[in-house]
Design a protein around this nucleic acid. Sequence first.
DNA 1: GTCTATATAAAGATAGAC
DNA 2: GTCTATCTTTATATAGAC
Lengths: 216, 216
Amino acid sequence: MPRKRRLTRDESRAETRQRLMESAERVFAEKGFYGASVEEISERAGYSRGAFYSNFEDKDELFLALFDERTDAQIAEVSELLAANPDPADFIAALRDRSVGRASQRTWIMLADEFWLYAMRNPKVRPKLAARERSERDAYQRAVVALHEAMGVAPPAPPELLALIVQALDAGFAWQQYLDPETITEDTFLDALALLTSASVALAEKSQLDNSARRA
Amino acid sequence: MPRKRRLTRDESRAETRQRLMESAERVFAEKGFYGASVEEISERAGYSRGAFYSNFEDKDELFLALFDERTDAQIAEVSELLAANPDPADFIAALRDRSVGRASQRTWIMLADEFWLYAMRNPKVRPKLAARERSERDAYQRAVVALHEAMGVAPPAPPELLALIVQALDAGFAWQQYLDPETITEDTFLDALALLTSASVALAEKSQLDNSARRA
DNA sequence: GTCTATATAAAGATAGAC
DNA sequence: GTCTATCTTTATATAGAC
């Protein structure tokens, strides 16, 4: 264990930045981009506004920094999740753990929604979030293809479309679930995924049957 | 055609309210709840702030009024759409017309997102939006049941789950499509619906086959 | 580097004139 | 009913002390 020592100027600065960003993540999620004041972000991080402005140009820069950090982390997360779980069933199980494990799931979904709105309203930011979504979609697509392979059938539709369906479901379920948790439980999304998997396989088998019938 | 006459006080007041709400719809969609100022809403409706405050208590009341109006309209719209299109294929075609016909589709999805965030942050409002979503889900469910009946099969899963899937897809696709219109076209959602319909029917047929095989 | 004090601007909301 | 003028609050951002 390394001997304790004073932080260098750069380390101290980085720590302040980090604490401000963690605080900002919470406040943005709670109040939204406009509703979150620099004062509240700073205070809840244990600093004053002065410290904030010595670390960030303005509120926009902070939000963008948060956006970049989260976007990069998510892209890496989904890719790693898939690499670590080549078996489709494991991948879905890992998805479940990911949602359950994220204690701050509600915070994250609110923040993701703020990101979406911010991206939709800022032409320079939109392509960056779109790229992040495409990257996530790629990971889903590899999972979908692997899953059908494991079941011994060809995907019954373009894998891009199947991946998009999974991704849209993920976002759409989150929206509905957090709005109405009494009706839609944690497991509903996974029930839906299981159902769609069976249905997709059934359709694939059916078209294989049709094809061999036509050949005979 | 009725003779022109002066508007009564009530009619004039109602018209001002209406114009303010239409303006507010655009400004809230563009800037979000906090970003939309009473001044801009009023000016773009052709009034001053004074007129605004003589018609609404404050910004919150206006947003809630808009929320209620839109919520009621949507519930009625989906129900009518289904009543007018008992045939499932017609219902899906009507869905397409609905999206194409709504020139202000982008405005609506931004506003819907603002509603969601607003509801998530206001405990008194959340149940109202949740009720609206449940009502929409009921309409989808009736459509799903009718669709399977028309194909001569029993739904291969609880109809509630199937309806929720359609609804989640609708929201999730809108999110992805407006973020990345270059990748995701207008028709992708309907392609997905068509695919899921075939897949659901294939799964239903498969389980019917399994059942008769077991009986034999 | 961070804090306190302060300048500046923007928005919400009200009051009184017409 | 709506407008203009005004009050009040709140937030961003900066400057200078430590």
